[in-house]
Design a protein around this nucleic acid. Structure first.
Lengths: 193, 193, 193, 193
DNA sequence: TATGAATGAGACTTCATTCAT
DNA sequence: GATGAATGAAGTCTCATTCAT
């Protein structure tokens, strides 16, 4: 399995750094190779093409992420509480890796439609996770019984994503983790009193 | 004033069509010129360069948009009602121009950081509009008194944007305007019952 | 005769200023028109094309120049003295019109081979003038009897031209007219004592 | 060192041929690449941009030239004799490479001011060489003791350059090397007998 | 496995010139 | 005669990918 060879991860991590520091459009394959300490051609022994690096990057990082959250959420069965864990974990992950935060919130979005479609496929796992929480909430009666799950999920994801993006655009200069209680409260209770 | 000359709008509208149909990265200046029915060089009598077309496009369309909403919102002073108008109008605008929807929700986001920064400046006007509604709501007591305006605005915008993007990704095959009551309700009341 | 109409000279003088201030490659027809206070299209009522402006410019200015020198040289029949007048007059003309000096010594030389060939044709008149002086000098016995007229002319012209060009490149910051005695002496006596 | 790789010189020599045969303004990079037998992109592995080719070309060829002359001039200490070597060598170099003669005497002079400034820097070395000869001549008493070195150098260079340019303009149809005694005699003794 | 020199397609922009008014 | 908006051809350079070593 290629993914287990040491250079696979080496190249992906190099890609994160190079994209974060140079921006998506200046992240040439040769720069990634240099950062990883391998020859340009070596990249193509592990990845089909440049797109493949980006998608693998997202798969690798996002996959870990979903697994982590699922584990953490296992501690409770209360959907509201699970949502809290979700928001906290999401923000925590971004806060833990500043480079990755830049890459996922800003740079990777400049990729072309093709790549973005395939990234969305990876994202689906995360969205299913959200759906599960919401579904659970409706079934256990802690969330509104006539909740439109799809819309609700879009609110949850859209809100978390926008808060995260704003934080990155503002150079991550405040603590995003401290925002989770406020975000959680807004999602659960809405704008009204 | 160049913006008042007929070809200015002609070219911008051509750009919307070409970008929507070919994607951001395949929207060559020559294609836009052809679609507008002018010579390549004519573009440069009205725009400094290709970037300038894109930014002007966004300014022109978004500017109109903010003005329209402000006018509609003038009918009521109730923040909750104003929010409803906001969501409805936003979705309506996207539904009214399928090409523009693709361009603003998908294609323009692939532009480089420079352009995106300048697009964000235009977007700010819209965000200020949201802030005004929320501020009004807090002051008149219809919204939660301890609302974090910035977070709340990020929820409102993030949700609307995510709903819109999903709709475009799914080829606009359902009615987005019919979603406004649900979105509005979610924003105001949250996920709980 | 087009050359007698007021706008003909107006445009040529505008061209001198524009080329001197912007350099040959940035001297667009539209700039020349603006400087002359006429419309772009008007240029083409007086000149066949852009080349024609440049060649006419040279003809006009250089023609006057040769006539002036011939007149001044008529005062004496001594070739050595005539050569002195030649050098002095040449330098004086350049000192009198700083813009023209830049144009003839630096900018016009960047024109393509075609234009330069035609400029050389105009220059020929000047070279014939030099030949006449030298021929006269040989015949009257004041110059070396076995002088190779062509080579001698190339030395005279090459020297004057190089001194002038160096002066322009150094921003005309010293007096070129004061150099004429030295140049004259060098040409006549050579480097030896 | 890039300059030592075989393709570096290959491309420079191709540039000389292409510029000589097509003229400066029609010497596209693609033509140079074709002449050199490499891909367009390969050019940019060895040169920063098109300007860089031209400047390198001049540096390379002119650098060799100055070294050659210095070596030849080492045989004698007599300034008059050294001057003879200088003129002969200069003409010999041009006669040896007809393409290069066209490029340096005619085509490269059409380059823009930027390039010409940098070419002048290379040329300076040559001018210093001339200055050294003249200085030596004055100090050893073979040249006029009150010689203005700068003016004298301008006469030497201006004369050589003008003779060379005329020869190239006339399609190199006579032998330029045979002119060196005449030119040398003129420079040393002047026009008088 | 690993290397890295070489490849070559593809698009933005300028500006001399025209011609309907 | 005068205008100036419109035209459209043409060239530099980047960078993902390959393949001989």
């Amino acid at each position: 399995m290629k993914k287990d060879k040491p250079k696979y991860k080496l190249i992906i991590d190099a890609a994160v750094v190079v994209i974060a520091e140079n921006g998506y459009h200046h992240a040439q394959v040769s720069k990634i190779a240099k950062q990883a300490g391998v020859a340009d051609g070596t990249i193509y022994l592990y990845f089909k093409n440049k797109e493949d690096i980006l998608i693998s990057l997202f798969e690798e990082k996002m996959g870990q992420f979903v697994q982590k959250i699922r584990k953490k959420m296992a501690d409770t069965e209360d959907a509201v509480e699970q949502l809290k864990v979700l928001v906290e974990s999401h923000f925590q992950m971004l806060a833990d890796d500043h480079h990755l935060a830049i890459v996922t919130q800003l740079e990777l979005r400049q990729s072309n439609k093709d790549i973005r479609m395939r990234i969305n496929k990876v994202l689906k796992e995360y969205l299913v996770l959200v759906d599960d929480v919401l579904q659970n909430g409706v079934e256990t009666g802690v969330l509104s019984e006539d909740l439109d799950i799809r819309l609700a999920r879009q609110m949850v994801f859209g809100t978390i994503d926008e808060v995260a993006t704003s934080w990155v655009i503002n150079d991550q200069k405040y603590s995003i983790t401290e925002l989770s209680p406020g975000v959680h409260r807004l999602l659960v209770k809405g704008l009204c009193k």
